[in-house]
Design a binder for these strands. Sequence first.
DNA 1: ACCGATGATTGTTG
DNA 2: CAACAATCATCGGT
Length: 358
Amino acid sequence: MDEQPRLMHSHTGVGMAGHPGLPQHMQEGTGGTDGDGRKQDIGDILQQIMTITDQSLDEAQARKHALNCHRMKPALFNVLCEIKEKTVLSIRGAQEEEPPDPQLMRLDNMLLAEGVSGPEKGGGSAAAAAAAAASGGAGADNSAEHSDYRAKLSQIRQIYHTELEKYEQACNEFTTHVMNLLREQSRTRPISPKEIERMVSIIHRKFSAIQMQLKQSTCEAVMILRSRFLDARRKRRNFNKQATEILNEYFYSHLSNPYPSEEAKEELAKKCAITVAQVSNWFGNKRIRYKKNIGKFQEEANMYAARTAVNAANASSHGSQANSPSTPNSFIWGFFNIPPIPCLYEKYLQHKFQFTLA
DNA sequence: ACCGATGATTGTTG
DNA sequence: CAACAATCATCGGT
């Protein structure tokens, strides 16, 4: 029985070309001592197998056929299969169950979030909502670019899915091809089901690597699309006239201290149908630009000051002239560059606000 | 096509 | 962290 490893080793030279073969230690101990009949038989077979490569093709073919029909063949083949299975199992144990790739997970998550790999239509709703938030409320004006964006996104999506399907199909085709090949070969060389399984998993891994590349490039495409279409700076819209008027009204009526509180910003945002961040941006821009060139804004300032003055006058003529803290005065000192009342002056100092000091 | 206006972003400062 | 300052990129009128 100690001859089997050698037999197998020899066999690799014939039917298992390219197979790594067995470990060295299994080839030791070939010394049969007693002249048993079966041993003789095995020795015979061994001899035949080992010399088979020296023969011509026809001769070798004939010899192979003879060996195939040998009465010992099934038993030997079974032993080979057994040994093979053990070695395959040990190999398999080494590279067991790789953990899910974190990068692949990230890509999958992003594709899902962008509505590329998710459910068919309306999948882009998350992205669309994000886009709406990014470009700032007032949905009417940006519907056009959204449809453009969505069209491009669905284009990417379509490419992604067809490519993915192609890979899947190719993978399946290749897998079945290899499996058929292996099954066919398993008649002439020992291939366990586990080995086939392993081979399939190797193929799948290779193909999933390709899929990952596809996912990566799809993600890149989506990112580029996003930055091109959804970067608010690129596709900015001027605020509508009404919003600008509301903002200007507040600005010029609080010219001494044009720093709306968080609550005031929220209210302005609501009135103008823009975000609080946009209100902050607007005031930031306005303050700096006003300060840079007060002369240029003088006319505008006068206009809004006059308007608020008229409003205030109307209001006071109608009801009791109760609360009109800083608004009426703003015209005066906004115009003459004099800080108005003490409480505002404090704020004025606090904020080092120097608009009024030409 | 040009150019000033304008909303947004980025980097710095207190 | 909010405000400032500089800058970007587009808008809108000519």
